[in-house]
């Protein structure tokens, strides 16, 4: 194909997206569109899978059966979300094995929030309330993104996600209204998860390298800073409602903007964690790679069994 032909195809492609048409797997697409989607979608899938680890940590120690079944269901949903997203990504021509390989070798990233430890039961509340809350804000606009399989996967994910945030908030509310020790525990979890949750919405617009192109492809509808402001404005009143304090001395309502002003985010910390120097990066990867390697014999045995069954069937047919 000549360069001019490609440019003409690209122009038609951009027009289709501007008209709100969806792009489906077998349609022509620019190589950069394919690559960007593989990167973002697989990163999203990896985040769901690694995201199971900090919460899986508490399933066996949940304080009641009610909390245990809810947490178990939430973690199972995250496995499901990872699987929807992996199979949607495979429609772009990358194999599941390749994606796992990229995750396990550190070539692909996952959300850096999961590199923080979950050290008390209140962290299950904070993760559901804040981390899932921030994730929902990120994900809702993606239900309308231009790539059909991604948009469809996101609709399923968003439908299921709201219970995650509510169960987290309920945990926080119970603790905040409990004994002084329980309230301290809730406040401590909020103190530790607040800033990482703000960072989770991505670098500031000035430093975000992908924003403009992603806006055009509807991979992004709002900038990171707008999403962050939305998250803060919606979360501060919720904290007040249950009597917890947001750990930001500079946080205050701005009457003119009808929004909260907030303090400086420690971006050095964010980049350190992204680069692999967070408190749990090594631990998470070790758990993930370990699970994959230790499961190899199960996958092999299942395949051998399936082949044997197939052979038996064929023999019977003869």
């Amino acid at each position: 194909m000549s360069e001019e032909q490609i440019r003409s195809l690209e122009r038609q492609f951009d027009e289709r997206i501007a008209r709100d048409e969806k792009i489906e797997p077998k349609d022509w697409m620019p190589e950069k569109y394919r690559k960007t989607h593989i990167r973002q979608m697989s990163q999203h899938a990896h985040s769901e899978i690694v995201g199971m680890l900090p919460e899986g940590n508490w399933i066996s120690r949940a304080p009641s059966l009610r909390r245990k079944v809810a947490l178990l269901a939430k973690v199972q949903d995250e496995a499901g979300h990872g699987l929807y997203l992996y199979s949607a990504t495979e429609t772009l021509g990358i194999s599941r094995e390749e994606m796992y390989e990229q995750l396990h070798t550190g070539k692909a990233k996952y959300s850096s929030i999961f590199n923080y430890p979950t050290i008390s039961w209140a962290d299950m509340g904070a993760v559901g309330w804040l981390v899932d809350g921030a994730a929902i804000i990120n994900q809702v606009p993606l239900c309308n993104t231009s790539y059909g399989p991604y948009a469809r996967a996101m609709i399923r994910v968003c439908k299921e996600e709201s219970f995650h945030q509510r169960q987290g908030f309920e945990i926080m509310m119970k603790l905040a209204n409990g004994s002084p020790e329980q309230k301290d525990m809730a406040q401590d979890a909020l103190n530790r998860w607040w800033w990482p949750s703000l960072m989770m919405l991505g670098p500031t617009d000035a430093e975000s390298i992908h924003t403009e192109q992603s806006m055009k492809w509807k991979l992004k509808r709002k900038s990171n800073d707008d999403l962050r402001q939305q998250f803060i404005d919606q979360t501060v009143p919720q904290a007040e409602l249950i009597g917890l304090t947001i750990p930001d001395p500079d946080l205050k309502w701005n009457e003119e903007r009808q929004s909260y002003d907030f303090g400086e985010i420690n971006w050095d910390e964010f980049w350190q964690v992204v680069k692999g120097h967070g408190p749990m990066n090594k631990h998470r990867m070790k758990a993930r790679v370990g699970a994959w390697e230790e499961g190899a014999w199960v996958r092999d045995a299942a395949m051998a069994h399936a082949e044997k069954k197939q052979e038996r069937k064929q023999k019977e047919a003869v």
């Binding site: 269901a73 199972q76 949903d77 499901g80 699987l83 929807y84 199979s87 949607a88 495979e90 599941r96 469809r152 996967a153 399923r156 299921e160 996958r299 299942a302 395949m303 069994h305 399936a306 069954k309 197939q310």
Partner: peptide, 24 residues
């Protein structure tokens, strides 16, 4: 059509489909 998944054979595919696509 609601999506896809990996499985060793058709029985496992059905069971995985139940867990992945019909949890509610």
């Amino acid at each position: 059509h609601c999506g896809s998944l990996h499985a060793a054979d058709e029985d496992m595919a059905l069971e995985n489909a139940r867990d992945v696509y019909t949890r509610r």
